[in-house]
Amino acid sequence: MIELKEISKKFGHTQAVNTISFKVEEKETLVLLGTSGCGKTTTLKMINRLIEPDTGQIIINGADITNQNPDELRKGIGYVMQNIGLFPHYTIAENIAVVPKLLRWEKEKIKSRTQELIGKLHLPENVLKMFPHQLSGGQQQRVGLARALVTNPAVLLMDEPFGALDNVTRSSIQKEFKALEELKRKTIVMVTHDVQEAFELADRICLMDKGKIIQIGTPKQLLYQPVNDFAKKFLASQKLALEFKVVNIQDIWSFLPKGTLQDGKAFPANLNIWEAMELLRNTDRHELLISADNKESKTVTFEQLTQGFNQFQTSQPHE
């Protein structure tokens, strides 16, 4: 668990971060969202003491981080950054082995752990002997992730991890990222300015502006209960697409007809509307079998799906 208590930081006359407090629960992914210069990266870097706060307190797993040696603290926190920052003079294997070597792991242990991660991150084995410049951007970012995960730290900090990638590569890595079992066990703080990405990956989003927190909450809360105009406007341009991603079939369950019971592969009800639509459009089936948590099953068509969604929308409280 990470807790920030009234953290402030000034650079010269600029108040980069202004009395910020939040908690990140164990195994939760918190995304710091905002425009550039809003203080989100500064906030992130204070968590592993790359930047020291002027005032306030940061507690990780019950311990105040200012009482710890910064180098030791950082060895226990994974860090992924936009520019990846792989060492150009190290091979991929050596890059991944940096922290294990600092921790004096045995060679065999480093090797087997590296192999394991390479497999999980879908990197071909022959990259291990290559140098960073010989890899594509997407591969480099996977190596960056492997480097951060290799010692299995409980906390992972990510600074715009997919920012340097093209759209196609980005969405495929995001998907892998979401599916990666290792990451589900971690407490993650991630910085992004990409609203779609934030909604895709966050358990909770912390929307920031001018060094202050505007709103902190689940994607659904941000979308349906924005606290002010700024929060509303920030999401306005992509509202519909975000809603499709935030609302799942469970939410609109009551607006769906009973449907005819049918045998075949059933999808879980936590499928969001966007995913359900994609399945219906891209495959040759007209209907989708969904089974809810209570073992109840329904079949939906595209029309039924949109109708159910619209009814859900109008049932939501409006400001």
Partner: peptide, 10 residues
């Protein structure tokens, strides 16, 4: 960024 990565890794 390389120096930052080095620091961030401890």
């Amino acid at each position: 960024h390389i120096k930052e990565a080095a620091r961030a890794m401890g």
